[in-house]
């Protein structure tokens, strides 16, 4: 079959009706300059027996193609979100380290230096531009370093904003329950939405606590009750004696949410209501 013939014929040309994968390939990658009475052509060429059979086949194939494409695209979206959340952590860590350096250095230059990123932001603009004398030159470097901290801090915020906007599109239910940033972290720790969806809830409960778990298994510590989900208010805000129960309840709902996000994508607001109720009961009565 030559190229010209392909680009001016229906998707079913040269496709064996029993061969789903070549049909899907043709729908996805084929092309034509203009439309034609494809259902009639398909009947005439013997691809199908009649028009209604044609539409049945077309429905199956278009649906299968779109479903695969959606899965694939969402898979790459998830990989990008994982990079984004890791980048955010890198940027915040580096910003904090440099801010400490700025603060220590400022202690040698000025009376009464502050601390942290806020202080670095404050002095980022303060000191004058490069100067000839020794002290001026050093202060200029300090101020420039502080400006780098500010830029990193801004970038960290921009990464966080992006995660907050994008994660709910890919994992609406996990984001609803955990908040978008924790949702992104859980997905990153699991290595993807699909892998998160396939984990038992006991594993989800301990995601991010791998070191503690290892220490426990080698007899050096008691067993951890929660991993990264500790940052969720429903765990950290629950009295210590009920925290394990709260962590288990949250992990259970997150696991269900991840499965819905991966397999169907429906929004299920009732998951939130159920979790709220469950946590209220745990805090009240401990079960």
């Amino acid at each position: 079959m030559n190229e010209d013939a392909v680009s001016d014929s229906g998707w079913f040309r040269g496709v064996d009706p029993g061969d789903g994968s070549s049909a899907r390939h043709a729908i996805e990658h084929g092309s034509a300059e203009s439309p034609a009475a494809w259902p009639d052509h398909a009947v005439e060429s013997g691809f199908v027996d009649n028009r209604s059979q044609y539409y049945e086949v077309l429905h199956d194939v278009t649906t299968a193609v779109a479903r695969t494409q959606v899965r694939e695209r969402e898979g790459t979206d998830v990989q990008r979100i994982i990079h984004c959340v890791r980048a955010m952590d890198d940027v915040e860590r580096v910003a904090n380290e440099l801010a400490e350096r700025v603060s220590a250095w400022a202690g040698a230059s000025f009376d009464d230096p502050g601390t942290g990123i806020e202080y670095a932001r404050e002095i980022a603009d303060e000191t004058a531009a490069d100067s000839e004398d020794r002290r001026g030159a050093l202060d200029a470097r300090l101020s420039s370093l502080a400006a780098q901290v500010r830029a990193l801090d801004d970038e960290g915020q921009a990464l966080r904003d992006t995660i907050e906007r994008v994660t709910p599109e890919v994992a609406p239910n996990v984001s609803m329950l955990a908040g978008p940033v924790l949702a992104a972290r859980l997905i990153a720790l699991a290595g993807g939405l699909e892998t998160l969806a396939k984990k038992p809830s006991g594993t989800v409960q301990l995601l991010g606590a791998e070191d503690a778990l290892f220490a426990h298994l080698s007899g050096r510590a008691s067993s951890p009750k929660h991993g990264i989900i500790y940052v969720h208010e429903y765990v950290s805000g629950t009295a210590p004696e009920h925290r394990g129960t709260a962590a288990r309840a949250l992990a259970g709902k997150l696991t269900i949410a991840a499965r819905i996000d991966h397999y169907s994508g429906d929004r299920r607001p009732e998951l939130q209501a159920e979790l709220d109720e469950r946590i209220a009961r745990i805090r009240e009565r401990g079960d």
């Binding site: 998707w11 043709a26 092309s31 439309p35 494809w38 259902p39 539409y55 049945e56 278009t62």
Partner: peptide, 27 residues
Amino acid sequence: ADSRPNLFVLLKDARKPEAYAHVVEPV
């Protein structure tokens, strides 16, 4: 589309009709 056998879903760009003219008939 699951409950509508006459609905055909095409994940395509409407600015590039060549990418679906091999599927869509005159309407």
